[in-house]
Design a protein around this nucleic acid. Structure first.
Length: 395
DNA sequence: TTTCCACAGGAATAAAGGGCGA
DNA sequence: TCGCCCTTTATTCCTGTGGAAA
């Protein structure tokens, strides 16, 4: 058997944490205008006034969450010097929370003692809101609630209630401000007009990073994260180019740099090269697929598997009914009944949202009709690797 | 200008499952 | 244990869409 003992290697990292999402830099690069607007929207807090509700929007990885953490840290620091200002911030990520109910439960548990947590089901909605307002009032002072990825909440109920809690008499002691963060640029339009006007009192739009800005961001982190001279020429540009291609996403570019460093360390080499970036990209794509469909129902995974088989045979883009044929064969092998056409359409639509496949609408007019064609957005090898890992673990 | 096609996707509804309080 | 209240996952039904063909 191989020797799995742990020995320190020649470490290329100085402070690896600087590439992680939770790390907040001393200075945010390339976000000056966004920070100026955001700062102005938070100003009432330090004046001791009721906070504005703020809505941040922009594609993923453009610095919305980082800017929030950066400014809230400063705000908390400076608020300590202001007499009579008692500031609290609560941050939750709504990814995986589909409803107002689940979000309210998460907020209650965030505010409560670990011994008094409530479960995710079983309570009437009104009781959960009652618990929430009770906890907020108990906390008192000025409370900023950050709802990251707020567009995942599929109903308006909580977003309607929170900004009105004080005027409706649900809370008496606390002053409440809601900061909603969304990757979905159309989210505001989908909101009920009353919710929109209260939740989006102040709006800050975050534009995508271009390749030059991404280079700046990566260099800033690289200088902290890595030892001097371990990054090969071209590695930063390559990560930035991939990030810019992925709609100006700094998070993906940073993940890519981190993974490249990890791969170099695994191979016990002293330099991170472009070859490591290539390898890291494949690994991240596979992980993205696994993460995206980990909690998917079996049929959702089979639909993706069916499209992958078609891609392997060079039969993509494929229309929905063409995906159905291999899907039914897979169901037969699994000895389970296939789901309806409607459900297959729903799965394909979700896979598109996850960025795992892309769908294109085709209209062939009279006699041909209108339909969608789907193809993989990631390489067949990555999808197969991701799917087999999931299907094997579940088997 | 109207017709037609092939779906897409919204809405209503059902079934199954889990936690809570009485 | 039972009824209630919530969830997720699915089905059925139905309307809307939009560009080529008639």
């Amino acid at each position: 058997m191989a020797d799995f003992g742990f020995q320190p290697t020649g470490n290329i990292f100085r402070e690896r944490e600087a590439l992680l999402e939770e790390w907040t830099p001393d200075e945010l690069v390339g976000r000056d205008e966004e920070l100026r607007q955001y700062h102005a929207a938070l100003q009432p807090v330090i004046e001791g006034e009721t906070p504005s509700n703020i809505f941040l929007y922009g594609k993923s990885g453009v610095g919305k969450t980082a800017a929030t953490r950066f400014l809230l840290e400063l705000l908390e620091r400076d608020s300590r010097d202001v007499d009579g200002l008692d500031l609290h911030t609560v941050e939750i990520n709504c990814d995986g929370l589909n409803s107002s109910y689940q979000t309210a439960v998460t907020l209650v548990n965030e505010l409560r003692d670990p011994r008094r947590q409530i479960s995710n089901t079983g309570y009437p909605q009104a009781s959960v809101y009652e618990f929430l307002f009770e906890e907020l009032d108990k906390l008192g002072g000025t409370i900023l609630i950050v709802l990251d990825e707020v567009d995942h909440i599929q109903d308006d109920s909580l977003l309607y209630k929170l900004p009105r809690a004080r005027s409706n008499g649900d809370i008496e002691e606390a002053r409440l401000g809601v900061i909603g963060i969304s990757n979905d640029l159309n989210f505001q339009d989908q909101l009920n007009s009353k919710v929109r006007s209260s939740l989006c009192e102040k709006r800050v739009s975050f534009s995508a990073y271009n390749a030059n800005e991404l280079c700046e961001v990566l260099r800033q982190r690289e200088s902290v994260a890595f030892e001097d001279g371990v990054i090969d020429d071209g590695v930063i540009q390559m990560c930035a180019a991939y990030g810019a291609k992925d709609s100006g996403d700094a998070r993906q570019a940073l993940d890519l740099l981190l993974e490249s460093g990890d791969i170099a360390r695994e191979h016990n080499v002293e330099m991170v090269t472009e070859a490591h970036v290539q390898k890291a990209r494949e690994r991240l794509q596979r992980d993205q697929i696994i993460e995206g469909i980990r909690n998917y129902s079996r049929h959702g995974q089979l639909v993706l598997w069916a499209l992958t088989l078609l891609a392997e045979e060079g039969k993509t883009p494929a229309r929905t009914r063409e995906v159905r044929q291999p899907y039914e064969v897979l169901c037969e092998k699994e000895m389970s009944d296939p789901v309806s056409d409607r459900a297959v359409r729903e799965y394909l639509s979700e896979l598109e949202t996850l960025g795992i496949i892309s769908s294109n609408q085709i209209n062939r007019g009279k006699g041909g009709g209108k339909y969608k064609e789907h193809e993989l957005e990631q390489s067949v090898a990555s999808v197969k690797a991701g799917l087999s890992e999931l299907l094997d673990t579940e088997a």
